[in-house]
Write a protein that binds this DNA or RNA. Structure first.
Length: 315
DNA sequence: GGTTATGCAACCAAGGCCTC
DNA sequence: GAGGCCTTGGTTGCATAACC
């Protein structure tokens, strides 16, 4: 698969005034939260607010009056996880960093899959705990997929070469849906999709719209067991009728944008703007949470914040 | 009692956060 | 923005609990 042309569309970065309006609402939320916070939190939040307010406001230009040319040098970015400007620039930056490595690997290991791991929706007060549980469970799962941890009579050998895990949270009202998107590069295919289960049906449960491979069904169960802290043994595995909704599909070009996109959108699943209550839940639950993590051959690819190069190219 | 799975600590690196 | 500190998370190996 030639991925050289897979980039973030320039249009995504151009709606600056729209981003500013969005950020004004977020700034209002920060202001309100500062008023409700302790003295120690106030300072941090105030710094965040100041950076957010200045984001993309200063443009550094070289001006050549005679030639009537203004040469863009750089802009200032706040890197706040809720900032509309920075979310998009960071997405572009991550793609620039990871895509060349992914492409190199795909030349040798052509099996690229996108795995989505979900857990049941949780109320806001449980989101922080849920994200921690998911991280711990994925850490364990990764050991099984890499063959570093084994469960007797349960072959999870998928020919793992490398993976990139990203966290995304969608939400509606007080219902939060954290899930992982994982790029898997494997040495072998995952077999025919010929099985059905509860997750195969369409939303009206009239017909089966999705088939699963044997490995997907095994992953669904493994994921549920690890998340719920059930001992991973063949007998427990067999007792489990169904796991959590998870799927592994061939990675298509368009899926890379999805993989590298931001942790939270500014709007809810029913297309409403993030409320103050939702903002409060998310800012607490996502504090110091890693959005992206590489494994195997993708381990140690730095997701640094030196995004100026990307900004230079795109502006 | 032997085997297998898990928990945990130690170490290290990545990434978030804070200060200047 | 740079640099340093702090927190989180991956890895490894060993002790122990659980299982058969």
């Amino acid at each position: 698969m030639d991925l050289r042309h897979v980039t973030v569309p320039k249009e995504m970065l151009t709606s600056i005034s729209e981003n500013r309006r969005y950020n004004e609402v977020i700034a209002g939320y920060y202001n309100r939260l500062i008023g409700e916070s302790s003295v120690s939190q106030k300072k941090t939040l105030s710094n965040n607010l100041e950076s957010l307010n200045d984001c993309n406001r200063l443009w550094f230009l070289d001006q050549y009056s005679k030639a009537k040319v203004k040469d863009f040098k750089k802009t200032n970015l706040c890197k706040d996880k809720f900032c509309s400007n920075c979310k998009k620039v960071k997405q572009a930056s991550r793609m620039a960093r990871f895509m060349p490595v992914i492409q190199e690997q795909l030349k040798v290991h052509p099996n690229a899959y996108q795995m989505v791991l979900t857990v049941p929706n949780v109320p806001g007060k449980e989101l922080e705990k849920t994200i921690k549980k998911m991280s711990k469970a994925y850490s364990m799962m990764n050991q099984y997929l890499q063959g570093k941890r084994k469960a007797k009579d349960l072959p999870f050998d998928i020919g793992f070469v490398g993976g990139i895990r990203t966290l995304e949270i969608t939400y509606k009202g007080d219902s939060y849906h954290p899930h992982f998107h994982v790029l898997l590069v494997l040495d072998k295919g995952l077999g025919e999709k010929k099985y059905t289960n509860t997750y195969s049906h369409d939303r009206y449960k009239r017909r089966e719209t999705r088939y699963f491979s044997e490995m997907e069904i095994m992953i669904q169960k493994l994921w549920k067991m690890l998340y719920e802290g059930v001992r991973v043994t063949k007998s427990n595995f067999d007792l489990l009728e169904i796991g959590y909704s998870s799927m592994i599909d061939q990675m298509n070009e368009g899926d890379y944008l999805e993989l590298f996109k931001y942790m939270v959108k500014g709007e809810t699943e029913d297309k409403k703007f993030m409320s103050y209550e939702q903002f409060k839940i998310l800012i607490v639950a996502l504090k110091s949470v890693r959005q992206i993590q590489g494994y195997g051959v993708f381990h140690s690819i730095q997701d640094d914040d030196s995004i100026d190069d990307m900004v230079d190219k795109l502006y």
